[in-house]
């Protein structure tokens, strides 16, 4: 029983971590937990290549 509880706790912790990473990635974060990198940072759009 005790082992089962610990397994559930581990699964919850790891599941939360994975869910958070997935959420951050979906919201456009280039790097999880890096400041000023969300939504493409303060950077201009890449210059389009001229034909």
């Amino acid at each position: 029983m005790e082992n089962l509880i610990v397994i559930v706790i581990l699964l919850v912790i790891i599941g939360c971590a994975i869910a958070k990473i997935a959420k951050e990635k979906r919201s456009g974060a280039k790097c999880i937990g890096c400041p000023h990198t969300k939504n493409g940072c303060h950077c201009p759009s890449k210059p389009t290549k001229k034909p």
Binding site: I14, I18, K20, E24, G33, P35, H36
Partner: peptide, 16 residues
């Protein structure tokens, strides 16, 4: 902001 980002990274990528 740096601290928040650091904790977020520790609780996700580093934890895994």
């Amino acid at each position: 902001l740096q601290a928040k980002a650091f904790i977020l990274k520790a609780g996700t990528i580093i934890l895994l």
